[in-house]
Design a protein around this nucleic acid. Structure first.
Lengths: 194, 194
DNA sequence: GTCTATATAGCGATAGAC
DNA sequence: GTCTATCGCTATATAGAC
């Protein structure tokens, strides 16, 4: 792995574990095994390196979600696959946690990938839900826009609850809770495939 | 306001805005207008002061929630009152944000109030939902434990989405989305009071 | 490209005078 | 109780040799 690559990957880990405010250039150097001089040769400084790390994490998150959204099955099946996918629950969401970082939020450049990721996610879920409603898989009274935000919020809040409890249990409960409520929205339209 | 009081209140604000890692004793002194010597006279240091601040914030959050939970109306009405209560959405949840702070999570003493707050909240909502189900206000198939976690998660995640978007809109959507799904759970049991 | 040296500021706390 | 002085350490770089 190249020097630059190791710096970015170490920064990604540290931002996930400690946030931007809690991560020092020195810690990045130690974790990556890259010296001070090298680091400042490849990157302008902490914000520059953080931008590379955040951008990559955001892209990865989006690609992983699209894997489930574009997968096989009914709308509810794809939603369940997305929500139940294996996650590093106790570490939290590497993008969501950045919304709690005052310096990331104060810097438009660092903030943009965070904003775009959640904007995309809500939009993509709105599409899925709308499609499910049109196919008669979901009740016509369901609000796709609001429900999309609800689903993303359940995941993000599930991480918070899991970290507070130091247990994955509340995350799993929150996910199963929303799936139960969504299942009750099954319209009369479509019968299971034979 | 006493010196001690001003220190605690300033620490509460700073923990809310910047977290534990992002808050320095110096910043606390400046915001409170209390000198270095005074601060270390009244408190042992940063962790001690933070504990006082976190404990108070947690107690306040619990008391505010109980105001709605123990209020008038049906189960769904009390849930709606709680979820729709006016909140400082863009500032986020002062307790939830601490789950993202590595030093709070690593210190059992600082962590405990956070853990207890969410434990209590989930338990209290489980009670409410169970009661609503027994009264026939909610479908018998609804899982009170899972749904309680879902509701708390929607709020916590709603804050994350609002901060990411720099807008209260996704928070409101998430809340209305879950209320819509819960309303669809209305059992046939109870008619509105005359 | 990578290294070591150096710099300014702030962190988190202690000491002791008033 | 409050103030100022001081401390050892880290944060975030920059400079210039190799």
């Amino acid at each position: 792995m190249s020097t630059s690559e190791r710096l970015i990957e170490s920064t990604r880990e540290l931002l996930w574990e400690r946030g931007y405010v809690g991560t020092s250039p020195k810690a990045i150097q130690q974790r990556s095994g890259v010296g001070q001089g090298s680091m400042y040769h490849h990157f302008d400084g902490k914000p520059d390196l953080a931008l590379a790390a955040i951008t990559r994490t955001a892209e990865e998150m989006r690609a992983n979600a699209e894997l489930e959204f574009g997968g096989p099955g009914s709308t509810l099946e794809r939603l369940a696959a997305y929500l139940r996918r294996e996650r590093d629950v106790l570490r939290g969401c590497p993008v969501g946690r950045l919304t709690q970082d005052p310096e990331v939020m104060a810097d438009a450049t660092l903030r943009r990938p965070v904003q775009e990721t959640f904007g995309w996610l809500r939009g993509r879920l709105t599409e899925l839900l709308t499609e499910g409603r049109e196919r008669g898989e979901l009740d016509a009274a369901l609000d796709p826009v609001a429900t999309a935000s609800t689903i993303v919020a359940v995941l993000q809040g599930g991480y918070v609850l899991a970290r507070a409890a130091d247990s994955t249990e509340p995350f799993t409960e929150a996910v199963e809770g929303i799936l139960g409520l969504l299942a009750a929205q099954r319209g009369p339209g479509v019968s299971p495939r034979p």
